[in-house]
């Protein structure tokens, strides 16, 4: 069945490939220029500037001024001081990604195959909480998970909560990350499941007559492009987030690298180089993971 799925994917790409209009040579460039120019000016150039700052040193006696001396020790210093926060970011983001996959997949599946005419309404429901503001919703989670809230008080009454708290622990931070980035997991999976012909799944059912095997051998492989995109769209923002750790976590042992970058930028005088070095370390690790991912699965499927 995997072969069939692959054949179908290969088939659709072949059709797409044949239908590029070979228009005037200049048209594609005219279409690209405004958007790409914007990305160069406000994405590429800022990243280069940040890279330069990450190897600068602060001017003694002039707070807020830096000079370029190729100080690569910024990286060593930042890492030796803040490696626990960096490690924690990847750990928390990884856990949240797994949780979001387990919660988001059934939702995406139901939207694609069971919702019928309600699928657009369900899609709106997935995006709609954005309008309440992610900060307000995170604070609501703080209330829900608080010691006197419904979950912690029930668990405490049953003596099932070691430590007695949910807020101010890593559990609350991971729960917040899972919740906040769930739509970014669900939507890509939904859009790749939506393209799957239900007849292929029926054929799997006819041949195996077992829902679970059909799912494992047919549906899941066919939704892999969406799963890959979804895991990246969840993992990357979660790894860089600092709001959940700030509002749901503690000051001691749940801070993530985002919290460090934010405070080095805004509250530590002369902290720009450290913050920039940490940003680039975070970015480099994510790009390496991405590279491994795309080597394995191809870029076109992710976009």
């Amino acid at each position: 069945m995997t072969a069939l799925a692959q054949a179908q994917i290969a088939n659709t790409t072949a059709v797409e490939g044949d239908h590029r209009v070979k228009g005037r040579r200049i048209t594609p460039y005219l279409l690209l220029i405004p958007g790409l120019l914007w990305l160069v000016m406000f994405f590429v150039v800022p990243m280069v500037q940040l890279a330069i700052v990450s190897i600068e040193s602060k001017f003694p006696g002039y707070p807020g001024y830096y000079y370029l001396d190729w100080n690569v020790f910024n990286y060593a210093n930042a890492l030796s001081e803040f490696w626990p926060q960096l490690l924690r970011s990847f750990l928390f983001a990884g856990l949240a990604t797994i949780m979001a996959f387990l919660i988001g997949y059934p939702l995406a599946y139901a939207m694609a195959f069971k919702a019928g005419r309600w699928r657009n309404v369900m899609m709106i429901c997935v995006v709609a909480p954005f309008f309440t503001s992610f900060i307000l919703r995170t604070i609501a989670w703080r209330q829900i998970l608080a010691d006197e809230g419904p979950i912690a008080s029930t668990l405490n009454a049953l003596h099932l909560l070691p430590g007695g708290h949910i807020t101010e622990t890593w559990v609350a931070v991971v729960a917040g990350l899972t919740y906040n980035f769930l739509p970014f997991m669900t939507l890509p999976i939904y859009s790749s499941l939506e393209r799957v012909d239900p007849k292929v799944i029926e054929a799997g059912g006819d041949l195996y007559a077992n829902g679970l095997t059909t799912f494992r051998r047919v549906t899941l492989p066919m939704s892999m492009p969406g799963v890959l995109a979804g895991t990246l769209m969840t993992f990357i923002p979660a790894a860089g987030d600092y709001v959940n750790a700030d509002l749901l976590g503690s000051d001691i042992d749940t801070k993530m690298v985002g919290n460090v970058i934010e405070s080095q930028f805004f509250r530590v005088p002369g902290g720009f180089p450290t913050a920039a070095a940490l940003s680039f370390t975070l970015m480099a690790i994510i790009l390496l993971m991405l590279f491994a991912y795309t080597r394995r699965f191809g870029t076109e499927e992710l976009l």
Binding site: F42, F43, P46, M47, I261, F265, A276, S279
Partner: peptide
């Protein structure tokens, strides 16, 4: 062009925010 479109999506918000702040103030 594909890469240039793809990169901002694979950049954590905090890194993008930090880089933009740097270029805006410097």
């Amino acid at each position: 062009a594909n890469l240039l479109v793809f990169l901002p999506m694979s950049t954590p918000e905090i890194v993008m925010g930090a880089s933009l702040l740097t270029i805006f103030v410097q």
